[in-house]
C-alpha cells in the first residue's frame, strides 16, 4: 500500500474523463479536442500521459487524429451519446440501475430538502423562469440537438436547485453523480410524455422549495427520480427481449 502511485493509471483516468465527456454528449461528433499540451496543462498531468490516453481513445474509436495544418484530435463522427447510453444500459444489471437510482434520489432529496430551508424566493423564481422557457423550447418533434439541450437545461436546473442547499459537498457530489446518471436519462427523454411529466414533477419540487416545505420537497424529488428510474428499468427489461 505504500508503493508510489506515479503516472501509471493516470492515463486511464484521463482516458475515462474524456470518454465520459464524449459518451455523455458534452463533446460531440466532430468537436476538436484541445491540444495535447493544453489538455496536459489543464488536467495537471504530463503530456506523455495525455498522448497515452488519446491512443486509448483512438483504439476505442472515440477519437480520430488528423494530420496537417488543420489537424488535431477530433471526436469521431460516429460518436452518438444515445448509442453509448444504450450500450451502458444493456451492460448494467437491473440491480445496478435501481441502486444508482437509490443513490441519486437520496442525494438529490437531501439537497432539495435543505434548499427548502435555505433558498431565497428570488433564487427559486430564477429557476422557474428558466423552466418556463424550456416549455416553449421543445416542440412536438425535437431533433437530437434540441433533446440534448433539453437534458442539459434540466440537469443544470437540478444542479442549481441543489446548490441552493448552500452545501458545497452536496453540490459537488450532485455534479459527480449527475455526470453518471444524465447520459442514461437521454434514453427516456426521447418520449414526449416522459419529458412533460418530468417538467411537471420538477415544477412541484420548486413549489415545495418555494413554500419552504422540506417534506414536500423531498417527496416530490423522490417522485421525479423514481419516475425516471422506473422508465429506465422498463427499457432495461425490454432490452433482454431481443
Amino acid at each position: 500500500m505504500f508503493l508510489p502511485i506515479g503516472d501509471a493509471g493516470r492515463a486511464e483516468l484521463v482516458e475515462r474523463r474524456i470518454a465520459e465527456a464524449i459518451m455523455g454528449g458534452h463533446l460531440r461528433a466532430g468537436d476538436r479536442l484541445p491540444s495535447e499540451a493544453d489538455l496536459a496543462h489543464t488536467m495537471g498531468v504530463a503530456p506523455v500521459t495525455v498522448r497515452e490516453a488519446l491512443l486509448g481513445l483512438r483504439s476505442r474509436g472515440l477519437v480520430v487524429t488528423r494530420r496537417g495544418r488543420n489537424g488535431g484530435s477530433f471526436v469521431s463522427a460516429e460518436a452518438d451519446p444515445l448509442v453509448f447510453a444504450r450500450e451502458a444500459l444493456v451492460a448494467s444489471s437491473r440491480f445496478a440501475i435501481r441502486d444508482l437510482g437509490v443513490h441519486y434520489a437520496a442525494l438529490t432529496m437531501a439537497g432539495t430538502r435543505l434548499a427548502a430551508r435555505r433558498a431565497a424566493l428570488s433564487e427559486v423564481a430564477a429557476i422557474r423562469i428558466r423552466l418556463a422557457k424550456l416549455d416553449t423550447a421543445v416542440g412536438q418533434k425535437p431533433g437530437a440537438s434540441e433533446l440534448s439541450a433539453w437534458r442539459q437545461t434540466m440537469d443544470d436546473l437540478q444542479l442549481e436547485l441543489v446548490a441552493l442547499s448552500q452545501s458545497a459537498r452536496l453540490t459537488r457530489d450532485q455534479m459527480r453523480l449527475q455526470a453518471e446518471f444524465s447520459p442514461l436519462l437521454r434514453l427516456i427523454d426521447v418520449d414526449a410524455g416522459t419529458r412533460s411529466r418530468h417538467r411537471e414533477l420538477f415544477g412541484s419540487v420548486l413549489d415545495a422549495v418555494e413554500a419552504g416545505d422540506e417534506d414536500a420537497a423531498g417527496a416530490a424529488t423522490e417522485r421525479l427520480v423514481g419516475d425516471a428510474i422506473d422508465a429506465l428499468d422498463a427499457l432495461r427489461l425490454q432490452a433482454d427481449d431481443f
Partner: peptide, 21 residues
C-alpha cells in the same frame, strides 16, 4: 493553490451556464 487556469469542456453543464444572469 496551483493557480490552474479554468477551462470548461465544450457543452459541459458549466459551459452552458449563461453568466450574464
Amino acid at each position: 493553490a496551483d493557480r490552474r487556469k479554468l477551462v470548461f469542456p465544450p457543452r459541459s453543464v458549466k459551459q452552458g451556464i449563461d453568466y450574464r444572469e
